[in-house]
Computed example of a mutant assay.
Amino acid sequence: MDNFQSSVLFRYFFFQWLFHDANVNELYQRAAAIAHNKAQRHYLLIYLRRWIALTMLMLFLGIMLEQMYALACVFFYTTAALCACTICNIAVAWVFLGQKNL
């Protein structure tokens, strides 16, 4: 699993490797992690575009397969729904990291 998390494909779609954990007890470490995460905030828009494109692709494939075989489109519609959840997570993270009083 560790090998997959360091792969290019993992880093292309998942952004957690860019951010530091701000859930520490030390005040200065937490402040440094929050400052680092705020500085990395602009990369979230790139990941947001990637996930939107993936969602649109999955919806398109689902629509195309629905015309041919209705049961085959379930995989693509389910994947699109999961992608939509990831889009919401990225959007919420982008909004909250943009707040001044974090």
Rank of each mutant, 00 (worst) to 15 (best):
M1S: 08
N3L: 09
F4P: 00
S6H: 12
S7H: 05
V8Y: 08
L9M: 09
L9I: 08
F10N: 08
F13A: 03
F15Y: 10
F15T: 02
W17I: 03
W17E: 02
W17D: 02
L18N: 01
L18F: 00
L18D: 02
F19T: 00
D21A: 05
N23L: 06
V24F: 05
E26R: 06
L27E: 14
Y28K: 14
Q29D: 14
A31M: 14
A31G: 11
I34Q: 05
H36E: 04
H36F: 06
N37K: 00
N37F: 06
K38N: 06
K38A: 02
A39M: 09
Q40F: 02
H42T: 08
H42M: 10
Y43I: 05
L44P: 00
L45Q: 13
L45G: 09
L48A: 03
L48W: 07
R49Y: 08
R50H: 05
A53M: 04
L54G: 00
M56N: 10
M56P: 04
M56S: 07
L57E: 03
L57G: 05
L57P: 02
L57Q: 06
L57H: 05
M58W: 07
L59R: 10
F60M: 09
G62S: 02
I63C: 09
L65N: 12
L65Q: 07
L65D: 08
E66Y: 08
E66D: 11
M68L: 11
M68S: 12
A72E: 11
C73P: 05
C73G: 09
F76A: 10
Y77A: 03
Y77L: 04
T78V: 12
T79S: 12
A80R: 00
A80W: 02
A80G: 04
C85V: 15
T86N: 15
I87S: 05
C88N: 14
N89W: 12
I90F: 05
I90G: 03
I90L: 10
V92T: 14
A93V: 15
W94H: 14
W94T: 14
V95Y: 13
G98M: 01
Q99F: 13
N101F: 13
L102W: 14
